[in-house]
Simulated scan of single mutants.
Amino acid sequence: MGLKKLTSAAMAACMALAALLPMRAGAELITGAVFQPKGENLMISPPPGWRMAYMDGRPDGDYVVDFLPPNEAHDSWREGYMGVQRRSFPDSALLDNIKARNLNVPQVAIAEIMQGAQRNCPGRFQPMGQKNTVTNGIPTSVSGGFCDRAGAAAPYGEGSVVAVFQGQERLFVVQFGWRPATQNELKEYGWRITPAKLQQYLDLLNGATLCGGADEGPCPK
């Protein structure tokens, strides 16, 4: 299924929401420190053997945490990457705008993320379809794609699958990425990833659950 076409008003809502997705800097940010998030959290496992490589944010607010395979560096990874972000909800006016169009926040957010990926790809972007679903009771939208030329860090392209989850109190954005190591690696596959590896990432997304919210169980320590 292709990306859902949005009305002009909904597109304006997309643009406003997209501004919330990048990590906001601030004096109170804890850079590179590992902490236990407080409040509602998304529980999702990285692929087996992957390690935490980076964490930044506030225990009671927005944060980002990255995972990498063994022996991969944060600034030059190739095999894979996993990023998890916790985000605050947009303001009430934007939420009302989205609801009035029979959409939810993940649908709008993932559509804008994918449109941004296509705009920012210096080469050819091969999109995946958008899937709007419910994951263990969590409204979710999933999409992705592959850019065949993504700059000096990924000269042979970079692919990703991205999911946005709408909790009761927070939004969560999860991204899995991959970069071919050579010009011809996995060229027989449209998104330069084996079906088995892509399915592994989708299975991990399908296993996500919420904890720590008002009507949710406590998060494991």
Rank of each mutant, 00 (worst) to 15 (best):
F165G: 08
A154E: 09
E40S: 05
M82F: 11
F67Q: 03
P69S: 09
Q183C: 03
G39D: 02
C219D: 01
Y63P: 15
A196W: 02
A9R: 07
T31V: 15
P90I: 13
P59A: 05
M128H: 02
R124I: 14
R124A: 10
P155N: 05
L42F: 13
P220W: 08
N120Y: 11
T194K: 01
I110S: 01
P70V: 15
G116Y: 04
N102K: 13
Q175N: 15
I193R: 04
P122C: 08
D91Y: 08
S88P: 07
L202E: 04
A163F: 08
P127T: 11
K38R: 02
K99V: 12
K131F: 10
G39L: 03
G57L: 05
G2M: 02
E28C: 00
C211W: 09
E40C: 07
A111W: 03
G49Y: 12
V65T: 11
V84H: 10
V142T: 15
S92M: 08
M114K: 01
E169C: 09
T182K: 00
Q183A: 13
P47N: 14
L205N: 12
S92N: 06
I193G: 00
G167E: 12
G190H: 04
G217M: 15
E79S: 06
M15W: 07
C121R: 12
P47K: 13
I98A: 04
K38T: 02
P22S: 11
F176E: 10
N120A: 13
P155H: 08
D148K: 05
A181T: 09
G123S: 06
K197T: 00
P22L: 14
P127G: 09
L205S: 10
D62H: 09
K4L: 10
T140G: 12
A181W: 05
I138M: 09
A196S: 05
Q85G: 11
A19V: 06
M11W: 05
K5D: 08
P122F: 06
D148M: 06
G190L: 09
K131M: 12
V134R: 10
L29N: 13
F165T: 08
E40H: 06
A117G: 04
I193E: 03
A33V: 05
A208H: 07
Q130Y: 02
E40N: 06
P90K: 15
L198N: 04
A25F: 15
L103W: 13
F146T: 08
E28S: 01
T140F: 13
W178D: 04
R192V: 01
E112K: 02
P155I: 11
G39C: 04
L20D: 09
W50H: 12
E28W: 01
T194S: 00
Y201C: 07
G26N: 06
V84R: 14
S88E: 12
Q85V: 14
A150M: 12
E28T: 01
G137Q: 07
K197Q: 03
M128C: 03
R86T: 13
I113A: 07
Y201D: 10
L17Q: 11
N41C: 04
G212S: 06
S45C: 12
A33Y: 05
Q115P: 00
V105K: 15
P37I: 05
N104R: 15
D66Y: 13
P90L: 12
C219H: 03
M128D: 01
G137S: 04
N136S: 04
T140Y: 14
I110C: 02
